[in-house]
């Protein structure tokens, strides 16, 4: 085992290899690694940002839902009130109409009765006079008893 020129050859090739590695091998590999690291870091940052945005959106959606429910309840309340109001109004109107119709009917019935009464009274007077005439024809003359007949008619 002797030391010889092989040593020089090895040293020269070593120097060339290191130079080549430093110039052409290391930089692109390091660049790719660093780019990927950056990509991954960006991706992770994006993911956490998206998570935050999701939380925010969920909170907002919850708020809006609550608001909408409140509004719906208000609208239903108002509608119920209005309904009751309308029903009451209709009831009152119907009541008034009924009273009016009943009053009218009673007035008509009253008028009819009065008319019938008058008619009956007239015919009864005629009937009474006729009856009296028949009686008087036999006993006294008609003129002497006319005042009695009139009295009778007036009493009917």
């Amino acid at each position: 085992m002797s030391i010889n020129a092989t040593l020089l050859g090895q040293a020269i090739s070593f120097a060339l290899f290191v130079w080549f590695c430093m110039k052409f091998v290391w930089p692109p590999l390091m660049k790719a690694i660093e780019e990927r690291q950056k990509k991954i870091a960006d991706g992770l940052a994006d993911a956490s940002r998206a998570e935050k945005a999701l939380d925010l959106a969920q909170a907002k959606a919850g708020d809006q839902l609550k608001q909408a429910k409140e509004q719906a309840a208000e609208i239903i309340d108002a509608a119920n009130k209005r309904k009751n109001q309308i029903v009451d109004e209709a009831k009152q109107e119907a009541e008034a109409e009924r009273a009016k119709i009943i009053a009218q009917g009673q007035a008509e019935v009253e008028a009819e009765r009065n008319r019938a009464k008058e008619e009956l009274r007239k015919q009864l007077a005629i009937l009474a006079v006729a009856g009296a005439e028949k009686i008087i024809e036999r006993s006294v003359d008609e003129a002497a008893n006319a005042d009695i007949v009139d009295k009778l008619v007036a009493e009917l």
Binding site: L29, A32, R36
Partner: peptide
């Protein structure tokens, strides 16, 4: 060694390796 690593270095991407 250098040839293999050089090849990889030339084709290296930041995507899925």
């Amino acid at each position: 060694f250098l040839w293999a690593f050089y090849k990889v270095g030339q084709k290296a991407t930041a995507g899925v390796p």
